[in-house]
């Protein structure tokens, strides 16, 4: 796995072996702050949320903005005016038009759009992402 740095983006190469990709030590990923990694020229956002890790394609389906440059916040829900319940589940707010996406599913909070998600885990201090075939097609 080749590693390089370019403008805050971690550049990686996928060996296409189908195995999980090691995108770095979990210590390198600050809690609740996206880090962008580029694999074969395609950008992905990697977010550590406590012990969980979420990986999404860095493209908003709305106007193709770099969605992972946006704010990450807890999911908010309400069943009645004036009540807001925050949930321990991240959403990202696209910096361009402020659309919100739930990171576990990739689905937009208020439309039928979605961003692409990839299974990821922390194992022995390393962040591993299973891009599978989807990454090569993304």
């Amino acid at each position: 796995m080749a590693r390089d740095w370019c403008g805050g983006i971690t550049l990686l190469k996928n060996d296409m072996s189908g195995a999980s990709v090691d995108v770095g030590s979990s210590d390198e990923f600050m809690d609740r702050i996206f880090r962008i990694v580029a694999i074969d020229g395609k950008e992905f956002g990697v977010l550590r949320w406590g012990e969980a890790v979420y990986v999404v394609r860095n493209i908003c389906p709305h106007h193709f903005s770099p969605v992972c440059r946006g704010l990450v916040r807890e999911s908010a829900q309400s069943e009645a005016p004036g009540t807001i319940v925050l949930q321990d589940s991240p959403i990202v707010i696209c910096p361009n038009h402020r659309w919100e996406f739930r990171l576990p599913s990739g689905f937009a909070v208020r439309s039928r759009h979605s961003i692409k998600t990839y299974p990821a885990r922390i194992q022995e201090g390393r962040v591993l992402v299973d891009f599978g075939a989807r990454a090569r097609q993304a």
Binding site: R73, A76, Q77, S78, E79, A80, P81, G82, T83, I84, I93, H97, R98, W99, E100, A108, V109, R110, S111
Partner: peptide
Amino acid sequence: NYRAFGRDDPWVNKP
């Protein structure tokens, strides 16, 4: 605007 400003009115649960 509904799509973009959910933080403003999370109790609006439908379009």
